[in-house]
Simulated scan of single mutants.
Amino acid sequence: MQSKNKTVVRSMDVLNLFLTHSRLSLSEMVQFSGMPKTSVYRMVTAFEEMGFLEKDEEGNYSLGLLFLQFGQLVSERLDIRQIALPVMQRLRDEVGEAVNLIVQDGEEAIYIEKLETKQAVGLFTKVGRRSPLYAGACSRIILAFLPNDEREDYLNRIELRPMASGTITDKTKLLPMLEESRKLGYTLSRSELADHTCAIAAPIFNNNGQIVAGISIAGINVNFQEEKLPLLIEKVKSAADELSQKLGYVEM
């Protein structure tokens, strides 16, 4: 094991002490961890500077507010997943295609839930997969509904790289597509993340009207012929609207 990996493991050993203790002194951390005092001191000092630990007037340490922020993010995403799963199952059964639930994670989108199609031929995606916000229906629906300043800042910084034959790599083409998605309430993509595939996505909003996730159906291109699109779009938008309502969103 590399030395820096050992350091990470030892650092986690110190933080794990707070799973069973609300407050600890430096001496107690040394005693419980069995590590040299100088090593523990360096770790604790770094954790305090980063906001992972807080020190009170008596010199005791407790977990910092940064953990509360991380915990809130995880809680929100898990709640979305739990709320979404029954709706996703119904949507999958109605349309016969794979259903994805995606949230934003920095400059990427990440799949937090996936229901496979029951058809013999489908797409390979998995929970934890990441994609750039500009590529693929579910990723791009998040980008489309970001606040204007966030979206512009992202587009100014990002380079549009091809992922498959249909990836949009021209910003002059991408911008009107984002505006159209905001107006219509959905996004359609073809061969953007993988060739010969198609996806339809719609946005999910919270009680503050902010986009928190995207839901999509995805499959092979031949299953998304033009005459089928209106019904498929209606189904995806309806599922997204239902989830938004469950999160407290009220359309103005």
Rank of each mutant, 00 (worst) to 15 (best):
E226V: 09
L19V: 10
N16M: 15
K246T: 04
D241E: 14
L101V: 05
P36A: 06
F47V: 01
T117L: 02
L229Y: 00
G185P: 08
E107P: 07
K114Y: 13
Q31F: 08
K246E: 09
A46I: 09
R81Y: 05
A109R: 03
G71Y: 01
V30R: 06
H196V: 03
E57N: 12
V103D: 01
P176L: 06
S39H: 02
T45V: 08
K235W: 00
L146A: 06
V9I: 14
I217F: 04
F70T: 05
V121I: 15
V95W: 00
T7V: 10
V127P: 06
K173R: 14
Q69F: 06
F124Q: 09
T169D: 08
N221D: 14
D56R: 01
Y186V: 03
M163V: 08
S165A: 14
G64R: 07
Y61G: 08
P36G: 01
D93T: 07
V9P: 02
A218G: 11
V8G: 00
N100A: 12
A194Q: 12
L91I: 10
T167Y: 07
V9E: 13
L178Q: 05
Y111A: 10
T197I: 09
E54K: 09
V8E: 02
F18N: 00
M252A: 13
E227Q: 12
R151P: 10
I217A: 06
A201R: 05
Q245V: 09
R92A: 15
T117E: 06
S11Q: 13
V121A: 13
R130W: 01
R42W: 08
A239D: 04
L184K: 15
G219E: 06
V222H: 05
S244R: 00
N156D: 14
L65I: 05
I217S: 06
S181Q: 05
S11C: 11
L85M: 12
S27W: 06
D93Y: 00
L65G: 08
V87P: 01
T187C: 10
I80L: 13
L188E: 14
Y111V: 15
D170S: 05
S27I: 12
T169M: 02
T187S: 12
G219V: 01
Y41F: 11
N16F: 13
F18M: 03
S216T: 08
N206E: 02
E49A: 12
S39V: 13
S216V: 07
G34Q: 04
K55I: 11
Q69C: 04
R77Y: 10
A240T: 02
Y61W: 07
L65D: 09
L73Y: 07
G59C: 01
S22N: 14
H196N: 15
T187I: 13
F145Q: 03
F52L: 14
